[in-house]
Amino acid sequence: MNDTEAKKRRWYLVGAIAVASSALGIIAFGNIGENLVYFWDPSQVVAAGDKSIGATIRLGGVVETGTVDWNPDANELEFIVTDGSETVEVHCSGAPPQMFREGIGVVVEGTMTKSGIFKSDRLMVKHSNEYKAPSEGESVEELYKTVEKL
């Protein structure tokens, strides 16, 4: 094999790798766009309106007192999440975790449905290293920091 042929081959190889990597880049970015999870509070969900339907959302807020309804036979947990100004009704499949109670900070992962109810199959309870009730109006960012398994 002579030198020019080797050089030509090398350029083919470089070209092929360039094409392959741009294809990979396009696929990867496209795929990421479809699989984003948004971190929102009830006000953002309400403000987004119909745009929030179908997207995967991690909704953070406080469980409103007097709204928890658990049906052990259907394995359905219903409650309302609030951030102080707006509220969202949440339907969760599954039992409430041991530390779940009214007034506690939670993050639920799921989607908004057309009926205006947030459907979730993943409920995470906020925890902190000290014993204290979550304070009123605690920011959602603070909440994410201390939530289980995040």
Binding site: I27, A28, N31, I32, E34, N35, L36, V37, Y38, F39, T56, R58, E141, Y144
Partner: peptide
Amino acid sequence: QISVGEPYFNRM
């Protein structure tokens, strides 16, 4: 604030 969901990683 967002995060990239598991399906992205699995599919890729």
